[in-house]
Simulated assay, not measured.
Amino acid sequence: MAQTGADDQAVTHAKFWKKEQQDCHTIESNEAGQRLDHVLTSRYPELSRSFLASLIHSGHILVEGRQVKAAYKVRAQDSLTIVFPPSSPSPLQPERIDFPILFEDEHLLVLTKPPGLVVHPGSGQHSGTLVHGLLYRYLNLPAADADRPGIVHRLDKETSGVMLVAKNNQALRTLMAAFKNREINKTYHALLSRCPHDRQGKVIGPIARHPVHRKKMAIDERRGRYAVTTWQIVEEFANGCCLADIAIETGRTHQIRVHMASVQAAVLGDSLYGGAQGQHAWLRPQRQMLHASTLRFAHPFSGEQLCFTAPLWHDMQAVLDILRNTRL
């Protein structure tokens, strides 16, 4: 497990923006009609909704050169300008939270996130996150958002696996850009509640917030953002479950869970998208059986191609062992 810091003193993160930074975008046709704050949340998943809302309210985000409200419905080809002011010190208090370390140098950290650990504060989760644990271990971390120092991508609370953390400003900017430009390859292992019809395949389905159930995402051809998931079956089991390798070309919220459920092969243990466990209840999965297994990327300073693999978390390995022992 990670070696933790030696004291409990409050720490602050290094400023990500030394001066104002500006991004410019053009609204895509599939974003037309959406609220401005929803578009921004989709385009900047590494930033909190409250932070983006504060930028809208303060006039740091303009549509066609004018200030609008968060509920403004954007139109295709609208110009969007976002001015990011210099960040302020994080108000977060460090907490001792252990997590396995796969690699570390002066620029970045590669770790294995345990299941059940929230990545950053938000939605009523104000303590006990990975960010609090990172602040306990490191005196300074860069941040694009004061609530998310070091964070360049996320995993769902109940998803385990490999994560990448930036330790300085240049690493943060470079890695955030690499994720945005789809230059970082992510592979997952998933136990699926049933096998798809084909042993391998691809789902291309734009993803947006569910129109009714706000905690869910959904494939939405009109409002959704482009999302691609590919799968390959590795093992099949007697009860109809299977182990699959899953790769994502994009990183939308709940992407794998939504896409696999759309081909009637929901992730085992996923009550949100897979419904009641039914015939698989005897396996007693305590979470969705989804694990971020491999991350491939270029080092932000040296350019060296790196690849890191996180072993299956023990609870998922235990379910896999049960399935293997009951195989026909």
Rank of each mutant, 00 (worst) to 15 (best):
Q264R: 15
G269P: 02
R284I: 12
F301D: 14
G269L: 06
S302V: 04
Q286Y: 06
L268A: 03
V263Y: 14
Y273M: 00
T294V: 14
L283E: 08
L295S: 05
H291W: 13
F301W: 13
P300R: 02
V263F: 09
A281P: 07
F301Y: 12
A266Q: 08
A265R: 05
S302A: 05
H299Y: 03
L272I: 13
Q279F: 10
A276G: 10
F297D: 02
A265W: 04
A281H: 10
F301L: 15
G275Y: 01
Q277L: 14
F301V: 15
L272G: 04
Q279K: 15
G275I: 01
W282S: 14
Y273D: 00
R287I: 08
Q264A: 14
P285I: 09
V267R: 02
G274R: 00
G278Y: 05
D270T: 04
S262D: 10
L295W: 04
R296L: 10
H291K: 07
L283K: 08
L272V: 07
A298E: 12
F301T: 13
H299N: 03
S293K: 09
G303K: 01
G278R: 07
S302N: 05
Q288I: 12
S302D: 06
H280F: 11
R287H: 10
V267K: 06
Q286A: 13
A266S: 15
H299E: 07
V267Y: 01
R284K: 15
A292G: 11
R284G: 00
Q286L: 12
Q286S: 14
S293V: 00
L272P: 01
A276R: 15
S271M: 03
Q288R: 11
H299F: 06
A265P: 10
Q264M: 13
G275F: 00
Q277M: 11
V267T: 04
Q279W: 09
A281K: 14
G274K: 01
Q279V: 13
R296N: 13
L295A: 07
Q286F: 08
A266G: 02
D270L: 04
Q279N: 10
V263A: 09
L290I: 09
G274L: 02
L295P: 00
F297H: 10
A298V: 06
S302E: 03
P285W: 08
P300C: 06
V267M: 05
G278M: 01
P285V: 07
T294K: 00
P285N: 09
M289Y: 09
G275T: 04
R284C: 12
Q288H: 15
A281Q: 13
L290N: 07
